[in-house]
């Protein structure tokens, strides 16, 4: 068997915030009618959460569901269960106009923790990240410097960032640069 590793293999950097490769994360792209009952039931079975509202993520122990577009969710599940859960979703959504795809190995996943977390992300993204505008549970797809990314704020004040695996090393370098110890701006 192959030994799966992430693009940046556990890399970590500490400055005004701590940037870390979160490790392998099961991710399933689910497209379909988000108002459909069978879809809601399938999402619940796979992740333990309801279908999230526009622009938000619902996180529970061992699973999460994020709103990607009016017809797309990103489901987070344990890495080892991604293949099985994708198959379960496909089975549960038979007859629905829907598609589930395991994209776990196509993505990189980082976390930004510490007091400077908000600032690190704000430096590289054209999103209003002020504490009033971006609160825990908010989920946003946008741009971080030159690459597309999605990110959200956890209840504990840390951010999670998802991007394509092909730009995983770029993302780690970018976040580390934005978190440089002498780079505090002090807006938040």
């Amino acid at each position: 068997m192959s030994n799966p590793v992430t693009a940046t293999n556990g890399a970590q950097f500490s400055g005004i915030a701590t940037v870390a490769d979160v490790g392998l994360q099961g991710m399933i792209t689910l497209r379909g009618d988000l108002s459909s009952k069978p879809l809601a039931a399938a999402v619940k079975a796979a992740t333990g959460t309801e279908v999230p509202a526009q622009g938000t993520i619902l996180v529970v122990e061992g699973g999460a569901a994020a709103w990607m577009s009016p017809d797309e969710l990103l489901l987070l599940v344990p890495y080892e269960q991604a293949v099985a859960k994708t198959a379960e979703l496909t089975k549960a959504l038979k007859g629905e106009h829907a598609l589930a795809a395991n994209v776990s190995d196509a993505r990189s996943f980082f976390q930004i923790t510490g007091d400077g977390a908000r600032e690190v992300l704000a430096k590289i993204s054209p999103v209003d990240l002020s504490p009033e505008a971006f609160v825990a549970g908010d989920f946003r797809r946008s741009r971080t410097a030159q690459v597309a990314a999605a990110f959200w704020l956890q209840d504990d004040g840390s951010f999670r960032v998802v991007c394509f695996r092909s730009v995983g090393a770029y993302m780690f370098g970018l976040l580390s640069t934005a978190a440089h110890p002498q780079s505090a701006v002090g807006v938040y």
């Binding site: 526009q54 622009g55 577009s69 054209p126 946003r140 946008s142 741009r143």
Partner: peptide
């Protein structure tokens, strides 16, 4: 679709 106020570079 998102209700997001997207800036030109997005």
């Amino acid at each position: 679709y998102c209700g997001v106020k997207a800036e030109e570079t997005e």
